[in-house]
Amino acid sequence: MLKRKVFVDGVETPVGLTLWGLLRNRSDLELSCYEPFVHEGRVSRIDIAREADFAILCGNASSSLELLGHLHEGPRIIDTSGAYLSGGDVVCGLPEFFRENSALIREARVVGIPNAVASASISLLHPLFEAGYLAPRLPISIHAVQGYSALEASETRSRAETAARAERAVFRTLQTTSIDRELREIKRWTRPPQAIQLATSIGNFARGTAVHIPLFQSNLTPHHTLEDAYSLLERWYLDSCHVRVTRGATPADGIAVGEVSDTNILELYCLPGSSEESGLLAARLDNLGRGSARAAIQALNIMLDRRADFALDGCLQPECR
Rank of each mutant, 00 (worst) to 15 (best):
K5P: 00
V6D: 13
V6R: 14
D9T: 09
T13A: 10
G16N: 03
G21S: 10
R24E: 14
R26I: 02
D28C: 06
P36D: 10
G41E: 11
V43H: 01
I48A: 08
R50V: 01
E51F: 04
D53G: 11
L65E: 13
L68A: 06
S86K: 12
G87K: 09
R99H: 11
R99N: 03
E107C: 04
V111Y: 03
G112F: 06
N115D: 14
A118S: 15
Y133A: 04
P139W: 10
I140T: 12
Y148K: 08
S149K: 02
L151W: 05
A153H: 05
S154V: 02
T162Q: 13
R165D: 03
A166T: 07
T173V: 13
S178Q: 15
D180T: 14
I196V: 15
A199M: 07
I202E: 06
A210K: 12
A210Y: 00
Q217T: 14
E227D: 09
R247W: 00
A252I: 11
V257L: 02
I265M: 13
L268N: 03
L271K: 09
S275P: 04
L285W: 00
A293Q: 05
Q298H: 14
M303Y: 08
L304R: 11
L304Y: 01
F310P: 01
D313T: 04
G314P: 04
L316T: 15
